[in-house]
């Protein structure tokens, strides 16, 4: 293999035409200005939303307990909503994450290449379905289908508080909502997991295989440790979506403002977003402020989850520094 080495090059030209130089500088300034402007704009929008939420919820925060819609205080009104929001999102996360990891592993390491590409498209399609469609699917198909299953849960696992019943006859329960949300966040988590799993370095996969690892052992030794923080980040993004989901929950859930861990009965806590959507058209005066205050709570929760996700994802830098 002959390699032709480049002839000793002349020293790079330092001198540039003055006009071109000035033009380059102008372009630089324009670009810097545009990107700084975009950055400031996003901060302004965020600050605007925060100011709106805070200023409009002050009347609710300072109002007399007796004037509030439930006459028991703001905490007693928003508390169950926060509880319901978190409960639905956590159910969705617990169901969707293992499934999404399994799908991502299948697509990246088990499926034949063509099937893998097809499945990738299908998962992306799942993300493109509007949430109102998920809501209708949930109430029209999933909920009735789950009714016998809830009855079975109550009879056989009723000693667990989660399934103490009485089982809903419509199926419009917290568990149904959690499952609908799980299907909705599945594409997000599996897409991010797929991405990190496919980037697991061949170097480490071969290291495991050369030691005599089976495919699953190879995945456990090199792919999963590498992708762990990416999966966590994807799960947090999914959690963010599940927390804010409005329509699907509003359509499916039969809500009654209680705090209960019973997932299969017909009395369920509502979620913040669904509650706002359902109550807002019929609200006026202080009631609107109360709803906005609940929105502020959702804003804070979602912000916290997203910051947590970002922090987790950023920690990946420590891992990839290897070699």
């Amino acid at each position: 293999m002959t390699t032709t080495s480049a002839p000793p090059s002349s020293p790079p030209q330092r001198r540039e035409p003055a006009a071109q130089k000035r033009k380059g500088r102008f372009g630089d300034r324009l670009f810097a200005g545009a990107s700084t402007g975009s950055g400031i704009l996003i901060l302004l929008v965020l600050a605007g939303v925060a100011v709106f939420l805070i200023s409009r919820s002050i009347p609710a925060l300072t109002a007399d307990t007796a004037d509030l819609p439930n006459e028991e205080g703001l905490g007693a009104y928003i508390g169950p909503l926060i509880f319901g929001t978190l409960l639905a999102a956590v159910i969705a996360l617990v169901v969707a994450t293992p499934l999404a990891v399994g799908i991502a592993l299948y697509i990246t390491h088990y499926a034949p290449r063509r099937l893998a590409a097809l499945m990738g498209y299908v998962m992306d399609l799942l993300a493109a379905i509007p949430s109102v469609v998920y809501g209708f699917w949930g109430i029209a198909t999933l909920a009735p289908a789950l009714v016998p299953f809830y009855g079975w849960l109550e009879r056989n696992l009723g000693f667990i508080p989660l399934f103490s019943g009485p089982a809903s006859v419509t199926g419009r329960t917290m568990l149904t909502v959690g499952l609908v949300l799980a299907v909705m966040i599945l594409p997000i988590i599996s897409a991010i997991s797929r991405e990190v799993f496919s980037q697991a370095p061949a170097l480490h996969r071969e290291a495991a295989l050369a030691l005599g690892a089976t495919r699953w052992e190879m995945i456990r030794m090199s792919v999963l440790p590498y992708g762990k923080s990416g999966v966590i980040g994807g799960a947090m993004l999914g959690l963010g979506r599940a927390l804010g989901e409005t329509l699907a929950v509003a359509i499916v859930l039969s809500a009654s403002g209680v705090v209960t861990f019973d997932l299969i009965s017909s009395t369920n806590p509502s979620t913040i977003a669904a509650n706002i959507a359902l109550q807002f058209p019929e609200s006026s005066g202080l009631n609107v402020n109360v709803l906005i205050a609940s929105g502020l709570a959702l804003f804070v929760i979602t912000l916290a989850v997203n910051m947590l996700a970002r922090w987790v994802v950023n920690r990946r830098a420590d891992f990839s520094g290897a070699n």
Binding site: G212, F319, N323
Partner: peptide, 30 residues
């Protein structure tokens, strides 16, 4: 092939210890 690779070890061009494992765990990984 898994059994073959357990009998025939391999060292690669670029060093590839498992980055998330300790030195100890790397040695006994196989």
């Amino acid at each position: 092939p898994v059994d073959v690779r357990r009998q025939i070890g391999m060292v690669f061009q670029r060093p590839n210890p498992f980055p998330t494992m300790s030195i100890y765990d790397n040695v006994i990984a196989g």
